[in-house]
């Protein structure tokens, strides 16, 4: 049914740049929580993993873990320049992100209760009372 329109080339396959743009411009299709997890929490998680791996390689995994959870002071660890960021991520960034995400989910669950208006429910009950009144042999 393309009579009258001049023949055109079929659309080209998207290249890598196009694919990346397409992915980026589709990000808002995600739900609020998933969008936030992908765009905010995932980068922070990657920074944290990078720091942890760096410190693990420099001072050993057990010492890196102890600095992360605050068992050891970053001032006692060597090298100090890598231990300080790991320590700060451990007590400031991660608790804040986990607490924020869980808090959001919990408040969404709390607010799922009592969402409809009283008048709306009453009208629905009134309608079901009158509409189906002669349908069960009474």
């Amino acid at each position: 049914m393309s009579s009258g329109t001049p023949a055109v080339q079929p659309p080209p396959r998207p290249g890598p740049r196009r694919r990346l743009l397409r992915w980026w411009r589709s990000r808002d299709a995600l739900s609020r929580l998933h969008r936030w997890l992908l765009l905010r929490a995932l980068p922070v998680l990657l920074v944290f993993l990078g720091l942890y791996v760096l410190n693990g390689a420099l001072m050993g995994w057990t010492d890196a873990y102890n600095v992360l959870v605050g068992i050891d002071s970053p001032g006692d660890a060597r090298p100090t320049w890598a231990a300080w960021p790991l320590s700060i991520v451990g007590w400031a960034a991660i608790p804040a992100f986990v607490g924020g995400a869980v808090g959001y989910v919990v408040s969404a669950q709390i607010q799922a209760h009592r969402t409809r208006e009283l008048s709306e429910i009453l009208e629905e009950l009134r309608r079901s009372s009158t509409v189906a009144s002669n349908s069960d042999g009474r």
Binding site: E124, R126, S128, S129, T130, A132, S133, D136
Partner: peptide, 11 residues
């Protein structure tokens, strides 16, 4: 006086 039934029975 109209024919009605319990809304819960209807649901």
């Amino acid at each position: 006086g109209a024919p009605t039934r319990c809304p819960e029975c209807a649901v």
